[in-house]
Amino acid sequence: YKSDKLEKIRSDIKQFKKNLKKTEAKEKSLLTKLHETEENISLTEKMISHLNRELKQKEREIQSTSRSIKKLENNLSKLKSDFAKRLVNIYKKGEYNDWELILTSRSLNQAIYRYKYLRIISNIDKNTAKEIRFNITTIDNKKHKMIAELEDKEKIINEKKIYQNSLSKQKNLRKRQINKARRDKNNLLAQIKEKEKAAAKLLKLIANLEKEREIRRKELTRQRALSGVRADNPFLLNQGKLLWPVRGKIVSKFGTQRNPVLKTITENSGIDIKAEKGTPVKAILDGVVTTITYIRGFGNTIIIDHGSGFYTVYTHVENVHIYEKQYVLTGTVIANVGESGTLSGSILHFEIWKNKMKLNPEDWLIKRT
């Protein structure tokens, strides 16, 4: 089954596999292999997510076509019944010769009236026959369309099964790799460096989003009007009152962080919230989803544009429930807490940006009691 979005993801998967093949002869660290597996998982989950969307759309189309066929068949049945009654009536009473009926009129006015009446009856009969033929043709076309839609649905289901089987194998491989990687302290140190690179990559992403902000602003304004959000800058107005993205404990705060075990000093551009694997991750405010991607060091990453230059970033997530360019409401479950891109277990790394400046999320989220 083909659609523009599916073709784009298929192309991304094909390119990823091509890149893997180019480097398969090279010596790779366990961490590199782990990230390749996670990126493969991310692409596969994205494909399954979009196949689910296409499947739902196809099911809606099938239901609509089915309702249309039923309505047309009921209309056809009534037309045929009415036309049959008319023919029976003509047969029982006998059909007058049109000229005979006109010529036996008692007056000129009656002759004119009968002539007009016969014309009307004739037109009704012709139109009814024409409508019957049209309904038959339309029903036939609709049935052919539904057959094609059912075939498309079957193709989507079969492709989805292939990717689901592949995903299961990839997740088992990742589990083995991550358990092995955690036993080596060097991998933990290497991941800190990867997070620094990930932060730099994220800054580039935000900078690029800033260039296209005006295009998204119009769509966000339109969606907010439809949803009844009236404030011009709700993010700023809700400072200190914004919803927490997940229920959990902050294990790493914003700013300079010292790790006594690894003896490292790092800059945290957000906060890290420890939570159980699978815990729902929510959008802290309404906005447009700009980015769903995999960043080495951050894993699966979601960026939401809340307007007026404010962005929120959610990383290390799994089971992404939304899609790019989608408008989401405050509290929408966008993903689940996962272990993507980290050796520290299930965790959510969360950031708030204003234009190209990082902000301390604790200054913006509602105070916990």
Score class of each variant (00 low, 15 high):
Ile162Leu: 08
Lys218Thr: 05
Thr290Gln: 10
Ser269Gly: 13
Ile112Pro: 00
Tyr115Gln: 09
Arg182Phe: 01
Ile112Lys: 11
Lys2Ile: 05
Ile206Ala: 01
Thr32Ile: 07
Ala84Thr: 10
Thr293Trp: 00
Gly287Met: 00
Thr332Phe: 03
Gly228Ala: 05
Gly248Met: 06
His35Met: 08
Asp98Ser: 10
Ala335Pro: 09
Leu359Ile: 04
Arg216Met: 12
Asn172Gly: 02
Lys160Arg: 15
Lys33Ile: 05
Leu31Met: 13
Asn355Ser: 11
Gln326Ser: 08
Ile366Arg: 15
Glu149Phe: 13
Lys145Pro: 03
Ala84Asp: 12
Lys17Met: 07
Glu27Asp: 15
Leu55Thr: 14
Asn355Lys: 15
Lys180Gly: 00
Thr221Asp: 13
Lys155Ala: 03
Leu167Met: 07
Asp125Pro: 01
Glu276Ser: 15
Phe235Pro: 12
Arg258Asn: 12
Ile41Gln: 11
His321Ile: 07
Leu262Ser: 05
Glu100Met: 05
Val317His: 06
Glu318Asn: 12
Lys180Asp: 02
Lys204Glu: 08
Arg176Lys: 11
Ile303Val: 13
Asp4Phe: 11
Gly287Lys: 04
Leu51Phe: 14
Arg296Gly: 11
Lys325Tyr: 04
Ile136Pro: 01
Ser29Pro: 12
Leu359Ala: 10
Phe350Ala: 03
Met357Lys: 14
Glu36His: 09
